[in-house]
Amino acid sequence: MRYVAPVRGTVDPQVFDRPPLVAWQDHARLLHGSDWPTIEALNALWPAGSPTCFVAQDLELLADGLHYEQRIAERGAIATREGNWHDLLNALIWLRHPALKQALNHRQMIEIARMGPKLRSRAQYAMTHFDEGGVIVLVRDAALMALWDEHDWHGLFWRHRDAWIDGSIQVELFGHALLEHALSPDKLLVGKAVVFQSTGTADIEQVSAYCAEQIAAGQLLHDPLELRPLPLSGIPGWHPANVDEAFHRTTICYQARRAGRHYPSAHAL
């Protein structure tokens, strides 16, 4: 069933006080209250000299016949529906992660040139899944990868609960559809993860920058099967019920690994 976001002004305020939306409190005035921000207000948040801007998606804009990605690549114009949660949250991701967004657009344009504007390749599906539901994960403890490989969710999220607090594993949410789903307090979030492993000093911001470089260079996201499911609602603080062990044994967002399903190794840094 297609997700329908709550009406603006009716969102439970608790969702803005926990991850992932708490990370966007610097844009609280765009998210709270009954009034939608204007396209002009969003554009005012770009740094000086930005090559992109938000433009209202209306019939006049769509009459140009361009693919969404073409409009970004050729005009720097990001079509944005006004009064729409999905597109507002997409705009926030653009503002925070422009290099990642530009990398995806670059790769999408390569695939559009190869496939045409109506067909989609496996790489385009992978990039779309990441754009909508993606998370970037930095893992420092190889033992956590073994648990993840086996979908040992109880082990990953309960027995090693401290790993999510002490930095042994870190997450940067990228997918704007995940942010939209987080508007509903009862929603169990599952991300599609690109995973990097390091024993060095790299932090999650550096890893995100490296991820953008690798996407742009065509080293990542060739197939949706590269992406690992990550039940974000199991991370401490992301769902109020996960303080109880029972959550990590019974919640429906913890799915068993499908027979024959294997994941690529984490990308080494």
Rank of each mutant, 00 (worst) to 15 (best):
R2D: 14
R2K: 13
A5P: 12
V7Y: 12
G9C: 05
G9I: 09
Q14M: 11
Q14R: 15
V15Q: 01
F16E: 03
R18P: 07
P19K: 01
P19L: 01
V22E: 03
V22W: 14
D26G: 15
A28L: 09
L30I: 04
S34K: 13
T38L: 03
T38W: 02
E40R: 08
E40S: 05
L42R: 12
L42G: 11
N43I: 08
A44G: 07
L45I: 08
S50F: 08
S50G: 13
P51G: 08
V55M: 04
E60R: 10
L61E: 09
H67P: 10
Y68K: 02
E74G: 04
E74S: 00
E74I: 04
T80W: 10
R81G: 07
R81L: 15
E82Q: 12
D87S: 13
L88M: 13
L92K: 09
K101D: 05
N105S: 02
R107G: 05
Q108K: 11
E111Y: 03
R114L: 15
G116T: 08
S121I: 04
Q124F: 00
Y125F: 06
A126C: 14
M127T: 03
H129R: 10
F130I: 12
F130N: 08
V135W: 12
V135L: 00
I136F: 02
I136L: 08
V137D: 04
A142E: 14
A142F: 06
M145N: 06
G155R: 05
R159F: 03
R159A: 02
D166E: 14
G167M: 13
S168N: 05
S168Y: 04
Q170R: 13
Q170H: 07
V171R: 03
L173A: 03
F174T: 03
H176G: 06
A177P: 04
A177D: 01
E180F: 02
H181E: 11
A182G: 01
L183D: 00
S184W: 03
L188H: 12
K192N: 06
A193H: 10
V194W: 00
V195T: 07
T201Q: 13
D203V: 03
Q206A: 07
V207Q: 02
A209K: 12
C211W: 05
I215Q: 01
I215P: 01
A216L: 11
A217Q: 02
G218K: 13
Q219F: 10
L225R: 10
L225A: 15
R228F: 05
P231M: 14
S233G: 06
P236E: 11
H239F: 13
N242P: 15
A256H: 14
A256K: 12
R257T: 00
R257F: 02
R258H: 04
R258Q: 15
G260V: 10
G260P: 09
G260W: 12
Y263F: 15
A266V: 09
H267N: 05
